[in-house]
Each structure stands twice: as C-alpha cells, then as structure tokens.
Design a protein around this nucleic acid. Structure first.
Length: 745
RNA sequence: GCGCGCUUAGCUCAGUUGGUAGAGCAGUUCGUUUACACCGAAAAGGUCGGGAGUUCAAGUCUCUCAGCGCGCACCA
C-alpha cells in the first residue's frame, strides 16, 4: 500500500490522533482551559447557563492537606475519589461545589520549622522569639502551600479555587474566635488542672489521639517497700511515693487497714507510707501492691482524687527532677535512672530485675518526644456536661433538649442525620465516643490560633479584643483540630450569614481516610451540631490507605514510596487516578504497584484509538434524520443504556471501584472488542442504510462512553471531546456536558 | 483485655438480598502491517483457611478452631 492511498483518509480526522496518546501533551493545557472557563465555580456555571439556578446543590470540602510537605499517594487517591464525585454531580446538572484548602497543622509544622532552624543556626525557640519564629513558619507554610496546590491541579481536581481557604486566614480566624467564645459562655469550655500529655521536647500538651505508643524493652525493677514489693520501669518517678495501694479483697494483705501508716526505708531515707485500699490495684499483677505517682500518671491521679491524697510534682516541664529528689534534683530523668538504681542497689532495696519486660512508651505523634504526664492548668471542652440544645435540625434532637456533646455526636449518626460508609465504621465511631474524655484544646506552641483569653492577676476574661491595660493574653494556642472541626462551616463563610452557607451547608458528603475518623470526622460533628444545629455533612465516605504492591505501608525508611507526581509524569494523571480507584473498596486499604498504573495508561491509549476509529468511520456520515436501526443496532444501544444506568447507580452508592471497572470493561471489551470489530464490515459494506444506522450508533456509543469515563479520566476524555466535530457535541466542554440519559430506542 | 477486619486462580483483589466462582497482572498457545503490539483470540489455572451446623441449595447465614492485620484500652 502506498503513502498516497493513506493520505486522503487521514485528512478526515484531526491529526492529533495519529500518534499514541501522550498525556504530557494535553493535561496542563486542558486544566488551564477548565480553570479559565470558570466552570469549577458553580456561580459561573449558573451564569453561563450550564446549571439551573435552582438546581439541587452538591457540596464537599477537600480535607485540607497539611502545609508541612508535599502530596503523597494517599492524597492522590483522595483527590481522585472526590473529583469523580464532583465531576459526576456537575454533569448531572447539580450546583456543584468542591472547596479547596490547606491546614496549618500547627504542631507538625512548627516542629518541622524549629527542626530546620536548629539544624542550620543551632538556635532554639526561645532564642528566636515568638514574632520571628512565626514569620519563618508562615514563609515555610506559604511555600509549601504553593507546592501542594500545584500538585493538586496536576491530578485534574476540579476544585473551586476562588473559594480557597486556609485554616489561619481571616474568615477561619473569625470562626474559631466565635466558636471559642460561645462555647466558653455556654460553659462547655473550661479551664482546669488535669492530668495531660506533656511533651518535654516540644514543650506542649498533646491530645490523647496524638499520643502513639511504641513498644519498648526496658528493665523492670522490683523494689522493697517496707514489707511490700512494688514493681516499676520508672524508678525516677518514685521519690514522692508515700501511698501504697492494694485491692480491698486481697487476702494476702488483710492484716493492713486502709489509712494505716507504716514506716519504710526509701530512696533518700525513711518515709511514712499510708495504706490505701482501692480496686484499681490488680491482685493478679505482680505482688498486687503498688505505689502511686499522681502527678505523672492519669490513672494514679484518679486514685488520688478518689481518696483526696496529696499530689506532688517530681519531674519538671523539661524532664528534670525537682527538689523532692534530694541529691538527684536537677538531673535529667534519663541520666538519673541509672544513678538511682545504683543507690537502690547499694541500699539493698532491689529484690530483682526483669530484663525482658516489654511495655508501651507514649510518644508525641507530631514530631515530638516521649510523653511525660503532668498536672497542668489547661483549657478543655467538656464532653459530658449537659446543656440545653439551641436551634436544631439534627434528626432526633429537638430545640431545648438536654444533651451532652457526647450524646449529640452519637445521636447525629444513630438517627441517620449523618450516614457513614462503610457502615462498620459506625461502631468504631461509637466506641471512640464512649471512651472519650474531656478534650484538652490548649497547646504551648506559637503557631496557630491564639486563645482569646485574658488574665489579670487571678481574673480571667474570654473575649477577642483586649479588655484593656494590665490584661495579658493567654500565650497558648488552640489545638489544630479545633479549627479543623469548624471546616465545613468556616469554608462557607460562617459565622457570617452568607449565601454560600445557606446554599451549601450541610455539605453533601465528606470523603476522607478512615484513619482520621476520630481526629476530624467526630470533631466536625461535635462542633457543627452544637454551633449551628446542623449536621456538617449528610454522608461520610471513608477510603482506605494506599499501600505498596505487597500491602505494606509506604514509608521512606522502607523505600517503597511511590510518588504520585512520578506516576503522572510517566503514565498520566488519568491512569494514576484509575489505578487508585479500581480495586479500592470503601474503607479497605489498597495495594498499588507501578504495573497497575501502567495498565491504565494502556487503557487511555485504547480510548484514544477507539475515538480515532469511530471518527474515521463516521466521517462521511450524512446529518440526516434518525436512521432505521437494525435489531443489532438497537441491542447495542440498549447495552449502552444499561451500562449508563449501572454505572450511575454504583457511583450513587459510592461504589466507585465497581463503577470504574464496569465502565472500563464496557469500553474495552464490549465497545472495542465486539462492537467495533463487527462494525468494520458494515462500514466498509455496500448497504448504505445499514451503514448510516451503524454510524449513528457508533457516534452515540462514543459520546456516551466519553461522558461515562469523564469523571474517572477527565483529561483524555476532554482531549477527545475537544476534537469532535461541533455538531456531535452538546457542550463546549465535556466537563459541563449533560450526563447521558439512559433511554431505549 | 475489648472491638473490627482479612484468609477466594502463581500475585493483588472483586463477589450487592444464599442458586455449585470473576477481574487485572504474571504465565501458556495461536494470531495480527491500516483504530490500537500501549493489539486480538483461545486455552489453562481455585475441594473459596480447617471443622461443624441451618437449607432443596453456602464463598455468601450461624457456631467453632487456626493464622494474619488493624484500632482502642491497660501496662505497678
């Protein structure tokens, strides 16, 4: 076959189709086109007439990535899922809003920047000063933010950038202040001395959820304590132990009475110990006797409170021993431990040492060190305090009902006001709430929202502006999750009564990873139901974690991290997205290997070639009235309609993995392998009527397949759409084209 | 300790209300120069972790055993 023979046919279709699909040539330009059009913004869609002004709203917030770093595969998966939901609903004609933002992640960010500064300048927090440190953190956050936004766009995310929000910007600041002051005035925020998780390295408190336990092997010491034997891994806390606790029913110690005093020889000499009978002592454990250190243990603190015992601090905020330690005072606990053991050994107070003891050491997940419980004056949210519910749209809760925040959180889900998918996470959610203690919300770091509380001598005032001369603002800042808890509201302008809030709140769905159900989902429900009487979202869709090919967690130390940008660079954003969707059942972790991404790149190319083939085949079609369809033609259209119906139903049920697979299967193994193959004879045949009919059918198949695939693979489908002849398209951009209507011929 | 999940083809996983198993990748055989080798066709491959029960019928429901993973709590 000669070159001349090929030429005429080729001219009928856009030249762009003549080489394999290359994502790099199209993606950035297409994203630019979408962004320029303004269609990410529902207001523009209404203005330009692609969305009805009174259409049903669909709204969702982007779980704001932390400004500490760059996007990873988990983010990419999240973006893929959310963009699919967004694009699908937009094509359905809904007023669709997906709001972008970033999170200050105060503790993690400050920790990171402090680390960088120390590395370069050997300077600590106090040497830099509050103002200067904040300046540096802000600069870091700003840069990180730009990186994240750039990466988010690479994924094709159809976010309305005109509504971009940052947790520390002015609107969000107003929301935080409003929430804090209101909760304080309603008695749901209080200041009190409690046992809190103190991080001596970061010099701040940490919430219960941010404490992670690491298993460690440490020697376990058995000490002589008068007539008793007590065990501990932490001898350095034991100086002030003057209460010895045993179970009231423990027969071994029946001879001792509650409140009885005995003299014992202890680390720094003789002391008088008091016997306490309390059920917290487990007779099965060791000798069944323990001494307590209430200042440095939440459990011991509770025992001490029950019996009204003295409480003494042993370790200071920096992790050094205090006066009570006598000759060891001023030593850091790490150095003190061996010295103490040496002395105990010399005094003959050590009975035995178990070297194979493993226990869990509490550490700060956000880049800090080992946790030392301390009693500290902090701000708390009272989760068990009853109050009268204000205005309420939460099902099952009426205005004026007496509730606690815990009950509100439970009822919101129980009543179906918020649905959780997959359902099994409801139980996880209830479980967590039932174990919930008052939430410590103050942090001793500088980055974040400063607490609107003012002190003058012993007086306290809670208000945003300074009450006047002589008043000092609380130097502490709020837990990041306090502001995150307001996110669905604050991104829509709350506390101002905005049109956005009226239209888009409650949001339709919250899509996020199951790992932050406690941190975030529960807290949004708490804050939003209390503050507005609305649920924050009607649905929660929880996705799993992206793991490596063999199911291991991706981590730098294992070297198995796959960078989403690398995947986009090699295989395109569409292939990357699809690889993160197919096989990812809601709430299940998903393994990902490069092979999978590569496989979907082939699919992108397949779409490209299907488009080329159909466009070539229909190039000489006449724009006549609807042709007479054969039985087979009708069957093809019915199959197409069935696929549309099924895929739509699966997306509605959040079964994106099934929807994606069905679309994929239809396009490749039905449209391409069967329909296109059998059409070759008809298109090249002599029966003009049959040919016209098949041309009509193929056009329909192409248009609807592109629409069907668009939410999943927005770039390639839009690229093809832009090459279609004008008369074939029913919208300027596929992004805002109407979702196919399933209709039988 | 409490709770949740997983165990299905060599690998990674699907399998909606119970009707004797599917996909992708890998592998086998064959084919293919005009939509696409980033292709097509065909074949192969599983007693659905073990055991018991309910049922006409169980991967699917119940109980039980085993292994793996995760969350929470405890940790003197």
């Amino acid at each position: 076959m000669s070159e001349e023979q090929k030429q005429p046919e080729k001219q009928d279709i856009p030249e762009v189709f003549l080489s394999p699909y290359n994502p790099k040539e199209h993606e950035d330009a297409l994203y630019h086109m979408w962004e320029e059009s303004g269609y990410f913004n529902p207001d523009v869609c209404i203005e330009k007439g692609v969305t009805a002004p009174d259409a049903e709203p669909f709204s969702m917030v982007l779980p704001p990535p932390n400004v500490t770093g760059t996007l990873h595969m988990g983010h990419a998966a999240m973006l893929a899922v959310e963009d699919i939901l967004t694009r699908y609903n937009r094509m359905l004609g809904k007023r669709t809003l997906w709001i972008p933002g970033t999170d200050s992640a105060a503790m993690a960010t400050q920790s990171k920047v402090e680390g960088l500064i120390y590395k370069e300048e050997k300077k600590r927090r106090d040497e830099i000063g509050r103002e200067e440190l904040l300046k540096r953190i802000n600069a870091f956050a700003e840069e990180s933010k730009d990186t994240i936004i750039g990466q988010t766009k690479k994924m094709g995310s159809s976010l309305d950038w005109s509504r971009y929000a940052f947790t520390l910007d002015e609107t969000r600041y107003n929301a935080v202040m409003e929430a804090f002051v209101r909760m304080y005035n309603d008695g749901l925020i209080y200041r009190g001395a409690r046992s809190v998780n103190w991080d001596p390295a970061m010099q701040t408190t940490v919430s219960d959820d941010e404490v992670v336990y690491e298993e460690k092997n440490s020697p376990f010491y058995y000490f002589k304590y008068g007539p008793f034997t007590i065990g501990t891994v932490r001898p350095e806390t034991k100086f002030g132990d003057k209460y010895v606790v045993m179970h009231p029913d423990d027969k071994r110690y029946a001879e001792y009475e509650h409140g009885q005093q005995i003299d014992v020889e202890w680390i720094n000499g003789p002391i008088t110990a008091t016997i306490i009978k309390d059920e917290a002592a487990d007779p099965e454990m060791g000798s069944g006797v323990m001494t307590i250190t209430p200042w440095h243990s939440a459990v011991d603190f509770e025992i001490a409170q029950r019996h009204n015992l003295d409480i003494e601090q042993v370790i200071d905020e920096r992790g050094c021993l205090m006066e009570i330690a006598g000759e060891f005072a001023g030593m850091h606990i790490k150095k003190a431990r061996p010295a103490i053991i040496e002395k105990m050994q010399a005094k003959g107070l050590i009975e035995k040492v178990d070297e194979s003891y493993t226990h869990n050491v509490a550490t700060n997940e956000r880049g800090g060190g080992m946790i030392e419980p301390q009693i500290k004056e902090q701000w708390f949210i009272a989760v068990n305090k009853e109050f009268a519910m204000g205005h309420s749209e939460v099902p099952g809760v009426a205005e004026g009902d007496t509730v606690t925040l815990k009950e509100l959180m439970i009822k919101t889900v129980e009543s179906g006001g918020t649905e959780i998918f997959p359902e099994r996470f409801k139980r996880v959610y209830y479980n967590w709430i039932n174990n919930l203690h008052d939430w410590c919300i103050s942090r001793q770091i500088w980055y974040g929202h400063r607490i609107p509380a003012w002190f003058k001598n012993s007086e306290v005032k809670v208000q945003v502006e300074s009450p006047g001369a002589g008043w000092e603002q609380d130097p502490d800042t709020l837990d990041t999750w306090f502001s995150s808890g307001l996110w669905t509201m604050s991104t829509l302008g709350w506390p101002a009564a905005t049109d956005d809030f009226a239209t888009y709140h409650p949001t339709t769905v919250l899509e996020t990873g199951y790992d932050i159900i406690f941190f975030w989902v529960a807290r949004m429900i708490l804050m939003t139901t209390y503050l507005t009487g609305q649920v924050p979202f009607k649905n929660v869709y929880l996705h799993g974690l992206v793991r490596d090919k063999s199911g291991k967690k991706m981590s730098k130390s294992l070297g198995n991290v796959i960078n989403p940008l690398d995947m986009i660079e090699q295989f395109g954003a569409d292939a990357t997205r699809l690889s993160l969707i197919v096989g990812a059942a809601p709430g299940n972790d998903m393994p990902l290997g490069e092979d999978k991404v590569r496989a979907y790149k082939k699919f992108a190319n397949k779409i490209w070639n299907i488009s080329r083939f159909i466009l070539t085949s229909v190039a000489d079609a006449e724009q006549s009235a609807t042709p007479v369809l054969s039985e087979r033609d009708q069957e093809i259209l019915a199959g197409l309609a069935r696929t549309v119906t099924e895929v739509s139903a699966e997306i509605d049920r959040f079964n994106l993995y099934i929807a994606a697979e069905k679309s994929y299967h239809y396009v490749w193994h039905e449209l391409a392998d069967v329909i296109l193959e059998e059409s070759k004879d008809i298109i090249n045949g002599d029966d003009a009527a049959a040919k016209a009919a098949r041309q009509y059918v193929l056009t329909r198949c192409l248009i609807d397949s592109l629409k069907l695939l668009h939410p999943f693979m927005p770039f390639i489908t839009e690229a093809v759409w832009q090459e279609l002849p004008e008369e074939m398209r029913d919208a300027e951009q596929l992004m805002v084209a109407p979702w196919p209507v399933a209709k039988a011929e």
